[in-house]
Computed example of a mutant assay.
Amino acid sequence: MAAINTGRMTHQYEIGKDGDLVVFLIGMTVNAWWRPDRWLPVFAAMPKMIRELSEDKESGLLGYRFVFHPRGPWLVQYWSSLDKLYAYAGAPGHRPAWAAYNRRSRKAAGAVGVWHETFEVSRAESIYVSTPLQGLARATALRPVTGRSNSARQRISTD
């Protein structure tokens, strides 16, 4: 079991100074559970890409979290740059998975879907109380909440 941080904690990452911050949500929607031949290859492609990105410290991927939803799994990813995220979209590690998805989806249209949402973050605030390391703090760094960062308004302030 992961260690529990019992105090009030927040993330440590100064947008602009430490890099940009991009939150990227990507997932699949299983529309035909009875067609694992269509959705299982899509699911199986993601761990390889995440491993490749995690091993390359220059990739721009700061961290990620798998989310399991009844309609299909998805990931929350934290990136240091929109340019690095887009560079990976055209990279050799990503292209074969995307091409394979497109080939399979033509054979059974609608059996499985893919989606993504991209957010450029100008300010970010977080609080973690009695939790293991997770979210933005896991992707960046964890620090205790202090007097100057006691409230959400103080933590998100640009002053």
Rank of each mutant, 00 (worst) to 15 (best):
L133G: 05
R148P: 03
E14K: 13
R38P: 04
G113L: 02
E58C: 02
F66E: 01
D18G: 06
R38F: 08
P96C: 14
N5W: 12
A89K: 15
E125P: 01
V76L: 08
M9G: 03
S59A: 07
Y78D: 10
G60P: 02
G16R: 10
V67A: 00
R104Y: 10
V67D: 00
Y78I: 11
Y88L: 08
S105M: 09
L53K: 05
I156F: 01
E117V: 05
G147D: 14
D18M: 09
Y86C: 13
R155G: 00
N5T: 09
H94C: 09
R155H: 00
A45C: 03
W39I: 10
A91W: 10
I156Q: 00
F24Y: 13
P96R: 06
S157I: 01
F66H: 02
M1R: 14
E117L: 06
H69P: 04
V30L: 00
F119W: 09
G110Y: 14
P70D: 11
S59Y: 03
Y86L: 14
R51F: 00
W34I: 04
S130M: 04
S54I: 15
I156K: 03
P41I: 11
P92I: 15
A45T: 02
N31Y: 06
L85T: 08
L75M: 09
L142K: 10
D56R: 15
Q154K: 02
A124K: 00
F119C: 09
A97L: 11
R106E: 13
Q77D: 04
F43M: 05
P36W: 10
